[in-house]
Nucleic acid binder design. Structure first.
Length: 417
RNA sequence: GUGGGCGUAGCUCAGUUGGUUAGAGCGUCAGUUUGUGGUACUGAAGGCCGGGGGUUCGAGACCCCUCGUUCACCCCA
């Protein structure tokens, strides 16, 4: 074991895996920019107060943040998510609404690492601020859906719920609290603790002994106002109009406190681990106000790269690709020829590579093969003498040929076309 | 934060009830052809058996601690 390794929950993404990460973000960017979203790049670090607004009662805020006092005595934190930063930016810059933005990048949560759950984890996401139209909810969900389709995923399930308006939600929480308190003896110990903090999240419990109690709990749908019900029904009819299948899951309450109305989650159909949620989001009509801005509706989602890529693995889609070059230059005369020719090729827009340390021709040919190059340019002492080079096709049965030096570039172009 | 599994070459793993110089495959490097890759064959390099302590004549194997990893809870993407 080396003396230094990555810290727990942190890891290196190496090639060729890293090529997939780049394509992932590029594909996401294409999907959402085609819908009018612009990229926002918020800082990794914010005043910790920005994240406190996400929810004083959530684990993310209370025990999972990487926070510290900086040299200027400011209490700051690495972002545990990016929605709060986007809202802070909205309040700070007051862009014209509706403000449609997308982001990608790492977030940090100090949790116990697990498969599909890391302390530094990447998300891509979108947020729209300043519009309350339920059809916007549908657009947002549809963009997530479209993105998964573009990756090639076929087994993503959409779970949908509505938390209603704040008053609906509050009355529901009160009723839930009363119900669970009446039945507290039948709850698991862990759920008793959860109940004391946030009754909503008891619904999330995966412990089998809680199942019966939860099944008998009050339902959020019994508390909707007419407006909340209409909003939710409009969202559902919009999804139906787009042929996006979904299931209403009344237990989907989501972890963050700021959600109102629509909440949704994308679940990887092939992932059987506890980390099967590959993305989630919802409407958060109160968050901008909490951060000191005007009352502003907002909705968005975040997708986890790691988990989505795990789902891709399970469905054998969106695989990593091995990078390769077009031309490999084999030079047995010391390496200066290869140095000059690879430079010329690269300037001409032709990818090329070579060996170093003056290895044997056989060794260099092996490297040429592994590089994925379509042709090898071979230069030995005979070629230097004759001012020529050998062009050897590597991926076909064609014979190699000796060509005068002044036809180097044209013959390579021709061989590649 | 709580509980269970697992840590042996770069990678994937063997290693018999504790017993001499710790093995294989793949990968890497080199050779079989002193100017030519993919196949085959040969060889080489590469391990304080995660780290520390203990039991023992003797520990990669057993015990304790610790670190890492993995699975579940929790939480969430």
């Amino acid at each position: 074991m080396p003396e230094f390794q990555t810290s727990p929950g942190m890891r290196d993404i190496l090639p060729p895996e890293s090529t997939r990460w780049r394509r992932f973000v590029a594909t996401f960017a294409e999907t959402v920019t085609a819908a009018g979203y612009g990229q926002i790049i918020p800082p990794l670090l914010e005043d910790i107060g920005v994240f406190h607004r996400v929810g004083e009662a959530t684990d993310i805020v209370t025990k999972e943040m990487y926070d510290f006092i900086d040299k200027g005595q400011r209490h700051v934190a690495l972002r545990p998510e990016q929605t709060a930063s986007v809202c802070r930016a909205f309040v700070q810059h007051r862009p014209a609404t509706p403000w449609k933005v997308w982001y990608s990048g790492p977030n940090f949560r100090y949790e116990r690492p697990q498969r599909g759950r890391y302390r530094q984890f990447d998300q891509v996401g979108i947020e729209v601020l300043g519009a309350n139209d339920p059809y916007l909810d549908v657009e947002v969900i549809a963009l997530g859906w479209n993105f998964f389709k573009r990756l090639g995923l076929r087994q993503v399930h959409l779970h949908l719920n509505s938390l209603g308006e704040p008053e609906n939600r509050q009355r529901f929480v009160t009723a839930l609290q009363a119900y669970f308190t009446d039945n507290i003896e039948r709850l698991s110990d862990a759920s008793k603790t959860t109940l004391a903090k946030n009754a909503l999240r008891v619904l999330d419990s995966k412990r089998p002994e809680d199942g019966e109690v939860i099944a008998g709990a009050p339902k959020i749908s019994e508390f909707y106002s007419d407006a909340a019900r209409l909003h939710f029904e409009t969202v559902q009819s919009g999804l139906q109009a787009l042929d996006i299948p979904f299931v209403v899951n009344e237990k989907l309450v989501r972890g963050l406190d700021y959600y109102r109305h629509t909440t949704f989650e994308f679940v990887g159909g092939t992932l059987d681990s506890a980390q099967n949620a590959i993305g989630g989001g919802g409407r958060y009509d109160g968050l901008v106000e909490d951060l000191g801005g005007p009352a502003t509706g907002g909705i968005g989602f975040a997708l986890g790269l790691d988990r989505t890529l795990l789902a891709c693995d399970d469905e054998s889609v969106f695989a990593a690709t091995q990078t390769s070059v077009d031309v490999f230059v084999v030079d047995t005369t010391g390496g200066l020829e290869a140095l000059v020719i690879t430079q010329q090729l690269r300037e001409a827009g032709i990818s090329s590579d070579r060996s170093f340390e003056n290895r044997s021709m056989k060794s260099q040919m092996k490297a040429a093969d592994k590089s994925g190059a379509k042709i090898a340019i071979i230069i030995g002492s005979d070629e230097v003498e004759a001012q020529s080079f050998v062009l050897r096709p590597l991926r076909s049965e064609d014979q190699q040929s000796t060509i005068p030096r002044n036809e180097l570039m044209t013959s390579i172009m021709k061989a590649l076309s």
